[in-house]
Each structure stands twice: as structure tokens, then as C-alpha cells.
Design a protein around this nucleic acid. Sequence first.
DNA 1: CAGTATCCTATCCGATACTG
DNA 2: CAGTATCGGATAGGATACTG
Lengths: 230, 230
Amino acid sequence: MSQTGYRQFCPVAMAAEVLCTRWTMVLLRELIAGSTRFNDLRRGVPRMSPSLLSRRLRELEEAGILSRRPVPEQPEVLEYRLTEAGQDLRPVIEAFGLWGQKWVESQPSLENLDPSLLMWDMRRGLNPAPLPERRIVVQVCYPELPASKRDWWLVVEPDGAVDLCQSHPGFDVDLYVTTDLRTMTAIWMGLTTVSGAADKITFDGDPALRRSMQSWLGLSPFASERKRVP
Amino acid sequence: MSQTGYRQFCPVAMAAEVLCTRWTMVLLRELIAGSTRFNDLRRGVPRMSPSLLSRRLRELEEAGILSRRPVPEQPEVLEYRLTEAGQDLRPVIEAFGLWGQKWVESQPSLENLDPSLLMWDMRRGLNPAPLPERRIVVQVCYPELPASKRDWWLVVEPDGAVDLCQSHPGFDVDLYVTTDLRTMTAIWMGLTTVSGAADKITFDGDPALRRSMQSWLGLSPFASERKRVP
DNA sequence: CAGTATCCTATCCGATACTG
DNA sequence: CAGTATCGGATAGGATACTG
């Protein structure tokens, strides 16, 4: 937002005054998704400058939306946790996301891809349930990208924990997935499906894993909402 | 919002890019409440400059949220109607308002009172159902205000139509209500009630009307949500 | 890694005045 | 009444570099 507040007694205006400043809703989405540490937040909101992030976090604390407390083990590092008021923003974020998914043209967003962000989101959403009960390693390759962002490894531990690596984790790879970033992003957003984009993906490795990919690949929380934009 | 967009493929960011610019949410609240004409919108969002209003309306049209069409009878005047995408913002606005009502301290907003806006909102919300089936005139007086904003008349026609006047409409007044603007605003927001603020209101006229006031006085759509802020 | 301070510019927005 | 153009200032926020 710019200049001063709205100075209006309507609750919508009161909320907008706190929430409708640049990056705030996106940051809140990341907090609600569960990130609590500064650099995790940065990963989730990569285009936001650290100084603005720092500032927003302070503002949100002041607004009673989150608390900044030292991490117990590392007292010089802060941890950001939503207060009750912050948790209660979940329906607000969901309403935003739902509406955005339904009504905002996605072509322009698909011009602004970001492999780190996508993989970070995929890591978070990945659903280990359909996977066999052993360590599973999936390598994703985007041949069009420069080497530093080309290869990614998702490591799913037997207990369901998921790690994202940018260098080979040392374990055998169960499934190789090669595609372009745009296709993978479209799948993640629910604009297409693994089978719908079959001609743009090549697989190598465990056929069962490949067939079940749509089910274990975690999609955007809004992927199930179909586009309505004309 | 400032600068350029977020260039992020998350639906929350996509929605925020359209919705989180200054005044936009407040304007949308007014559109969803039913205003369709430029100057009605101005009344509902009085602190917004006309040029910004004009601009936002064009942006919202571009975003597919509303349509600008000439009024059938007055082809040189435009009428702003929400499209389906715009109607679908209702849950978003409601989520905002609900959260604002629950979690934003209202003291500061109560420093920024506005009789025109309040009366305009009251006119809109007034519930004619509990009133007798004849024309009812209620005069509201804020003695503390300058003459030009002191007296207001709500005229409820037998068919339920409500008019707001700033000069005596000529009909007999059924009920006089005298109070201060802050009290009336607090009632409208649900922070107190007519009987709870009885010591700050004086009545003259029809006792039945007075007793039923809480029921016919239209409150803010969010008035029923109780404050939770600590 | 975690977070902050500084600096500078783009741009958003508010005020005002103006036209059909 | 309905709506738009212009203009200038404030400030938000981006880039960068820096500290514990």
C-alpha cells in the first residue's frame, strides 16, 4: 500500500490496511504453508528482497499476526510463528488462492517460471502415502536450464520426510523424470496432468513409480479448482 | 501495489496482484454491496480520489472483474456491474471483513468517523421488516457536528425502499434519535448495542419504534462477529 | 546462516482543475 | 452529475552491502 491508511471504520478496510501491502499476502501464504525460518521464507518468496521481508515480518508482528521468538537451540536466531490471529488468516489466503486459480489467466505467470520455487513447493506437497515403504529417490531434469538449475533430487525417506537436493544425494535413483520447466509447472498448478502432458515428459526407471506419479506428486493446494476465465 | 507484479505462478500471488492495490478491496466491497454508479461508489469510498477511482474501475474492467456499460436510459453515463468473476469475489471480501472484525483493533478506526459514510451504510442496511406498513421517518441528530452534517433523515417507504436525506423531507418524523457519532458508529459495527449505549442516546417519538430499533437498524454485515483481539 | 541499514529511484497516489 | 487529465511529492520497496 502507499501513503497512509484508509482511515475508515469498515472491517474490510481495516483488514486491507494490514494485508494489502506488497508481498504480504504471498508471505502469509508461505507462513501458513508452514515455513518458520527466515531463509525458508526467502525460498518460498524468492523475489522479495531480504530487507523488505525483514520489515514485513516486523510489521506482521506488530499487527499481532505472528510472533518472533528465538529458536530454543539457537537463541540468536529467530523463529516466526503465526499467532491465533495469523492462523485465522488461512481462510483469507484460501479465498485468494481459489479465486486466483479460477479467474486469473495463467499464461502470464507461466512466463515467469522458477525451478527453485517449483521444486521447493513440490518438496512440501509431495505425498509419500502411495510410495513403497523404503527410501525413494526421484531425479528431475530440465535440460533447457543452465547446469546449476538443471538437476534436482527429491529424496523420500521411509518415514515420509522429503528432502530436496541440488546435487546427487549419493543414493540410487529410482525414477528419472525429464521434461521442461513449463510443463512441470503446469502440472503442479493443475493446468494439465502427467498423462495429459505425456508427450513432453520422458521417464526412466521404476514403471510403477512413473504410473503413480500423478498421485504422489504434490500439486498446488488449488490445483483441483478448474479455470473459469473466458 | 507498487512497482511491477510478482511474476510468480502461485494463485495467491496472481490474485494479490489484481486485488492488493490501494483502495481496491474497499472499492470491491462497495461494488459487492450493490453500488453501480460512479457517484454512489464515491459515497461508499469517500476518501478515494475520483481520478484513482476512475483508474481502478478501468483496471478492474481489464481484469475481467466488472463491465462498464452505458446506462440504457442515459447512454452517456456508465454503469459498473460485476461480472461472474467479480461476483465470485464475494467470499474473498467476506473473509477480509470477518478477519478484520475479529482481529483488528477498532479504537483507531473509531478516531476516523464519517457521518455521511455511516448514514449511507445505514441506509443500505436498514431492515424494513419489523417496521409498520406505512411511511416511517427517523431523524438522526449528532449535536456535536457542524450544522451541515448534524441532521439526517431516513425515510422508509411502505414498499421497503429507504431514502437518506440531509434536509427535512417534509413528512412528520416518527422517531428522533440524538446521540454522538462515535456511539452510533460503534453500534453499527456491533461493538455495542442500542440498549448497551442507552445512556448516550436520547429518543423522542414512537416508543415502539425506539424499542425495536436494534432490529430495524441495519448493522454492518460483520457486526455479529465478536472481537477476539487481546 | 540470519537479519539489518542505507541509499536511491520508480511509481503510486492525492489534489486540483477541467470537460461533456 | 459523471468522469478524466495533469502534475508534483511522498514513499514504498528494490539493490546492495554489511554485521553478528
